[in-house]
Design a protein around this nucleic acid. Structure first.
Length: 575
RNA sequence: UGGGGAAUCGUCUAAUGGUAGGACAACAGACUCUGGAUCUGUAUGUGAGGGUUCAAAUCCUUCUUCCCCAACCA
């Protein structure tokens, strides 16, 4: 991927800024030389959907903390449910991880890589009297499990002989039984207050073909069994996950303690740590809801720039560095969090303010003619690319008699504090001259179609006499030299901070912002922008940061997606 | 008395018995050839009640509120 350099660069620049309890634990472990002072994490997505902003915490923490302590992070797909998982998602997830600049080197693993090993562990568990084959039906098992407040009952098959269980388990593996007729269950405690400990199922029969192992296996291990053992096999030291798995930690430890997985006495014993999930205002995260947005046409695709998916964020123009910065600022904790999307926007604005080149694009053009400027003349003005970065240099921008300015930079009857152009008033054209509006040209319906202006040759930017001041400055493009482009103005997808908190009779789709996308087809852009390459980011002066859509570009279209607008105190004053 | 987790400015997050601090958001002002950026300033917080202590966000205690768990999903 051409984007991987972007991510790697970002990795060097950014690390966590805030402290967090996981880091404290790692620091302590390193100090005590636990596991030889090594940190080894893993990022364990299930390939059943696209990575989205809710996964960002785990992604950045798993890879970022390992990186910070000179450790390693494996990429391991949790692919033990063939009904849900697809190769397509594996590929998309890998693409997103590469884009973020994270490197798992040759450590790309799949839980399915361990199916044979896990199977052997399971046989041993049976031999040790710690697991049995259960013939209870799905409904019976639910009944035997008890409830949150009542203890469960032991399965009548719990005490059958090891030999019988082993025989049955082997025949399960041979594919002799239909789905749903048998399970392998751990023998733990049906009375436990923790439902996960009530003789949990560790293998079930499934004949669905697996995206990697095909039809090799008629039985599949459950997450709770597979995950700790996969961690153990890989030598993971710190196994991090979100808080809804806290109840599973006891089971995690049970498998670590009861399966003979250790090859050497100093193989690290993995420990699970949990943190609270990341939520962001104005988004939905669940796969089901995201799918509805796509399928019901609220957005165009999974990578629509309004989607909170990683691929959507990328098309919106977010950078890996800004995303890492965001996670660093949010921090890792165990308290529930719904982070203000404004923080995410701040992170990308801050980065782009220092890196994005300034350009001029007139989104809604209003023609002006400088009546005292020589016809046919073009002068090239040197304008700085980025006032925040002197090294960014200057570029030449053509200036001529006929120009476009923004429609909203002119008002015939302006209110107080409107510092832009009005009849008889003056503004500076950025990097050029001060102009005065002499005459307003209207069509038959009274719409303003053109302004006749005059320029003051004494006020050329950079010249000694340029000192005269006017309050307003506008961006502009030369009509003759401008190219036309499509600009997509994106805004928040929802009108509500928490779209899921719907009123009676409504659901989250009722809060989709009808103005979340405005497509402008007739934007006039300066010559530099006509040469823009996919993946480039610019500031459109006074308007915002824009990303050259790499997807549209591949289809032959030059489209600028608004990543985020500039802070706009004028707009705020008018709210 | 099911089990587990969490409560600090509007939002995140620090302070591990010793001045409740930072970031984002908000507001006000300065500056500005981007109404951007930058700078300065302002307001807002320890869920509640008891207790220990010279001193409590922090320790003890009672209570309240919120989140997660009853897939042969992860």
């Amino acid at each position: 991927m051409s984007h991987s350099n972007e991510g790697k660069e970002a990795t060097k620049l950014t690390s966590f800024v805030s402290s967090n309890f996981i880091r404290d634990i790692m620091l302590e472990d390193i100090k005590n030389n636990k596991n030889g002072g090594k940190i080894h994490t893993r990022f364990p997505p299930e390939p059943n959907g696209y990575l989205h902003i809710g996964h960002l915490m785990a992604l950045v923490a798993d890879f970022g903390l390992a990186e910070e302590f000179g450790g390693l992070c494996n990429l391991r797909f949790d692919d033990t449910n063939p009904e849900a998982e697809e190769q397509e998602y594996v590929d998309k997830i890998i693409e997103d991880i590469h884009w973020m600049g994270y490197d798992y080197e040759d450590r790309l693993y799949f839980a399915s890589d361990y199916f044979q090993q896990l199977y052997e562990f399971a046989e041993q568990l049976i031999l040790d009297g710690k697991a049995f084959v259960c013939d209870l039906t799905f409904d019976e098992m639910r009944e035997y499990r008890g409830t949150l407040t009542e203890p469960g009952k032991e399965s009548p098959y719990r005490n059958r002989s090891k030999e019988e269980s082993l025989d049955l388990f082997r025949r399960m593996r041979l594919g002799e039984f239909p789905e749903g007729t048998h399970t392998l269950r751990a023998i733990i405690d049906m009375k436990s207050g923790n439902l996960n400990m009530r003789d949990p199922v560790i293998y079930r029969i499934k004949y669905a073909p697996h995206h990697r192992t095909g039809t090799d296996w008629p039985i599949y291990p459950m997450y709770d069994y597979q995950h700790p053992l996969s961690d153990a096999i890989e030598g993971i030291t710190h196994s991090m996950c979100s808080l809804e798995y806290a109840d599973h930690n006891e089971l995690y430890q049970w498998f670590i303690n009861n399966v003979k997985w250790q090859k050497h006495p100093d193989d690290p014993i993995p420990i699970q740590y949990e943190w609270s999930r990341l939520n962001v205002t104005g988004t939905v995260m669940s796969k089901r809801r995201l799918r509805r947005l796509v399928e019901e046409g609220y957005v165009d695709s999974w990578d629509d720039p309004r989607m909170p998916t990683m691929c959507g964020l990328r098309r919106r123009g977010y950078t890996p560095a800004s995303l890492k910065d965001f996670i660093g600022r949010v921090g890792i904790s165990r308290s529930p969090k719904i982070v203000d999307a404004a923080l995410l926007e701040h992170c990308i604005r801050e980065e782009l303010n220092s890196t994005a080149h300034r350009t001029m694009a007139v989104l809604r053009p209003l023609k002006i003619t400088l009546t005292n400027y020589p016809e046919g003349q073009t002068e090239y003005l040197e304008i700085e690319n980025n006032p925040e970065d002197p090294c960014a240099g200057d570029r030449s921008v053509p200036f001529s008699r006929e120009l476009y300015i923004e429609q909203e930079d002119f008002m015939e009857n302006p209110p107080r504090k409107f510092f832009r152009l009005r009849p008889g008033g003056e503004i500076r054209l950025k990097g050029a001259y001060i102009i005065r509006c002499d005459e307003v040209v209207k069509d038959e319906e009274g719409n303003v179609v053109e302004l006749l202006c005059s320029y003051d040759p004494e006020t050329k930017s950079g010249s000694p006499q340029a000192g005269r001041r006017v309050r307003g400055t506008s961006h502009w493009v030369s009509a003759q030299h401008a190219a036309t482009a499509t600009v997509k103005l994106y805004d928040h997808l929802f009108t509500k901070d928490n779209p899921e908190d719907a009123e009676e009779g409504k659901d989250f789709t009722d809060y989709v912002n009808p103005e979340s996308l405005e497509v402008l087809e007739n934007c006039k852009i300066e010559p530099r922008l006509a040469e823009a390459q996919p993946g480039e980011r610019f500031q459109f002066l006074r308007q915002g940061y824009f990303y050259v859509d790499h997807v549209d570009f591949a289809e032959g279209k030059l489209v600028f997606n608004r990543t985020v607008g500039l802070r706009d105190t004028w707009a705020r004053m008018n709210r």
